[in-house]
């Protein structure tokens, strides 16, 4: 299966767009390598700003540039942009309505053995609690490119978290992405699975595995965590009667929390929130850790089956 990284896709796309629009500026924090920025800094030095290892100032300076009409994409590690710069995002970007697009790279546990300092497992909880901020986690490289097009049109500031590794390509090259609209995969009625980021392809593989066992699932690629596609969540709850969320984030306050908030108000159904438990994450590559935490394809299948059983017991 063809694989590609979201960060690479972003860099390729933004270079292409920035060549057409001199107001586009990429801001980075000594992260041009890890962001896979490639030739951008050399090809467009006038539209590239190196801030050094200073995420807080990077966000604030980006906000100032936006206030003067620049279209700023600030790129750097998700862990630092989301948490270290949380106040700058809250005050200078969201509260001040400065349309900075923050691309948090190597999100979740992408950095693996580099440990908790480099993991971003609370970023979605934090970012989605801030008013006037879009929160996105694309699931593949082409969706990332489609998002850049959407972002260039949209005036709302955003936090976009992408992973580090290459993930299977799920969408065609020119896919149009609508912010706030989930992508629906399948039409099974036994269980609804909602996932984001690199959990989407795992959820899709799990759905295939379940199908082989006669269990029919529908998968939502919930790339926009905020504003959440509430209609899609409620439709899924009505059709499937139970919902499993899968995310590379703390079980608290992320995608699962967002979905639960919608369900509890309008359509309570049995639900399981699968994510990173509230404890230290063991060292290891992300895929290994997912297996250990039963967030791999088999683990997702087990959780889905347990949830269906719970639904049936509740009658």
């Amino acid at each position: 299966m063809e694989k590609a990284t979201c960060r690479g896709a972003f860099s390729e796309k933004i270079l292409q767009e920035a060549k057409k629009d001199k107001d586009i500026v990429v801001v980075c924090t000594d992260s041009r390598g890890s962001a896979s920025l490639g030739s951008y800094p050399d090809e467009l030095p006038e539209q590239f700003v190196e801030m050094g290892i200073a995420e807080q100032n990077s966000v604030t300076v980006s906000a100032g540039m936006v206030a003067m009409g620049k279209k700023v994409f600030a790129i750097g590690p998700a862990s630092f942009y989301s948490m270290r710069s949380a106040e700058q995002v809250k005050v200078d970007v969201a509260y001040s309505h400065n349309n900075v697009k923050i691309i948090g790279i190597s999100g979740g546990i992408s950095y693996g053995a580099l440990g908790a300092t480099h993991h971003s497992l609370q970023d979605i909880a934090l970012m989605r609690a801030i008013p006037d901020l879009i929160v996105e986690i694309p699931s593949d490289a082409n969706q990332m490119k489609g998002l850049v097009d959407a972002f260039l049109e949209d005036k709302t500031p955003a936090y976009i978290r992408v992973g580090r590794g290459a993930v299977p390509v799920l969408y065609p090259e020119d896919v149009k992405v609508e912010i706030g609209r989930a992508q629906v995969w399948g039409d099974g009625r036994d269980v609804g699975i909602i996932a984001c980021g690199q959990m989407v392809y795992r959820a899709l593989d799990a759905a295939k595995l379940l199908e082989e066992q006669g269990i029919h699932a529908t998968v939502l690629d919930m790339h926009t965590i905020k504003p959440l596609d509430e209609a899609a969540v409620l439709k899924l709850a009505r059709e499937c009667g139970c919902i499993l969320t899968v995310e590379e984030h703390s079980i608290y306050g992320g995608l699962g929390g967002a979905v639960a908030e919608v369900l509890v108000a309008d359509k309570p159904v049995p639900m399981t929130i699968a994510g990173i438990p509230d404890q230290d994450v063991p060292n290891g590559a992300d895929a290994e850790v997912f297996t250990l935490l039963k967030l791999d394809v088999e683990g997702i299948c087990e959780k889905a089956k347990a949830l269906i059983k719970r639904k049936q017991e509740m009658g």
Binding site: V25, E46, V49, Q56, N57, T60, V61, S62, A63, G64, M65, V66, A67, M68, G69, K70, E87, Q88, V91, D92, Y95, S96, H97
Partner: peptide
């Protein structure tokens, strides 16, 4: 900025100089 003439939302300290730096940088670029 809801107040006519005000250029930035401030209050949390330590933000203005960075904001002004971004604004001045964009002006210089242009």
């Amino acid at each position: 900025k809801k107040v006519n003439g005000v250029e930035a939302n401030t209050g949390s300290l330590g933000h203005g100089l960075g904001l002004a730096t971004g604004m001045a940088l964009a002006l210089k670029m242009d």
